[in-house]
């Protein structure tokens, strides 16, 4: 039996590695918020077209994740959390990842345009380009505010879902966009606090690395307050009813309690940062709860 020594990964990347390149776990939240945007929108589309819209959002998110990993292959290799991804682990060559990401990007945008409408396709295209060029290439290696502005990339799915049904964008999808946008800093910085050594080793200027833990905790608390306003905006603007308002009140109060625990914590050892891990885990659940509540509320209003 012969042994392949000439760049074997280029020929033999497992199909599971291509799936891993799309960050499936991150995709679940993207798909869910996109689906909620689609379900909350007024009007009706055929279930097959709705499925196609969600498939396009998922593939677009996967394409952006693949291109993100293509750009960050070197720095991913320096971080414990990401060192086992297909590119830094050497299970796939860079060109395959680039071709996969670019191909999937075009495929998702064109399919969205042909099956649904070109306005939704344009927003999907902008979200992919924003994530890759504005967040990954421009902001992430340069500024500690990278995920504040870059968070917009993750906020597009409910807008795309809405636009797929209606062909336009109105106040509610913009409110949902703002909710994810202001949710991103406390969500991401909670994680950044306990993986700070990883980011420092890779030279990525995340807020805890650049400004320190005290400042990060202060900003998590500050952005939680802004996020709370964004969470109540749909009720205050009468875009949703009492059901969403009640759920948002309870869920946001719990978020605030967990964020306050992070704010008041003096823990410096990442291994002992329980409050930060709890906030990170709950922040994901929080978004699922609020978006689910928006859909149920809109259905009840209808």
């Amino acid at each position: 039996m012969t042994t392949a020594t000439m760049n074997p990964a280029a020929l033999t990347a497992d199909w599971r590695d291509f799936v891993a390149l799309t960050k499936p776990r991150v995709m679940t939240l993207v798909v869910f918020t996109g689906l909620c945007g689609l379900l909350a929108a007024p009007g009706h589309i055929h279930p097959v077209l709705a499925f196609t819209a969600i498939l396009c959002i998922a593939l677009g998110a996967g394409a952006a994740a693949a291109l993100n990993q293509w750009v960050e292959a070197d720095s991913d290799g320096l971080m414990k959390r990401t060192a086992n991804r297909p590119l830094p682990a050497g299970r796939m060559d860079r060109q395959s990842a680039l071709h996969f990401g670019v191909g999937l990007s075009f495929f998702s945008v064109i399919l969205m345009g042909l099956a649904l409408n070109w306005f939704a396709a344009a927003i999907l295209g902008v979200s992919i380009l924003f994530y890759v060029f504005v967040y990954t290439i421009w902001l992430k290696p340069r500024t500690a505010q990278n995920i504040v502005i870059g968070g917009a990339a993750g906020a597009f799915p409910p807008v795309i879902g809405w636009a797929a049904v209606t062909g336009d964008v109105s106040a509610l999808p913009i409110a949902l966009f703002c909710l994810i946008f202001f949710w991103t800093p406390p969500h991401f910085w909670a994680l950044a606090l306990y993986v700070r050594p990883d980011y420092a080793a890779a030279g990525i200027p995340m807020l805890p690395v650049v400004a320190g833990e005290r400042e990060t905790r202060r900003q998590i608390w500050g952005y939680t307050a802004i996020m709370a306003v964004a969470a109540f905006a749909p009720v205050l603007l009468r875009l949703t009813g009492a059901l969403y308002g009640t759920v948002a009140l309870v869920a946001t109060l719990l978020f605030a309690v967990l964020a306050f625990r992070v704010f008041s914590s003096l823990e410096l050892d990442p291994a002992k940062m329980k409050a930060e891990r709890a906030l990170f885990r709950y922040s994901i659940l929080y978004l699922f709860i609020l978006f689910g509540a928006v859909v149920f509320d809109r259905w009840m209003l209808a």
Binding site: M1, T2, T3, A4, T5, N7, P8, A9, L11, T12, A13, D14, W15, A89, G90, R91
Partner: peptide
Amino acid sequence: NKPVIDEAQIRARQ
């Protein structure tokens, strides 16, 4: 850093 893979494994993955 790249893993060394034998030919049978390459064919199976393909």
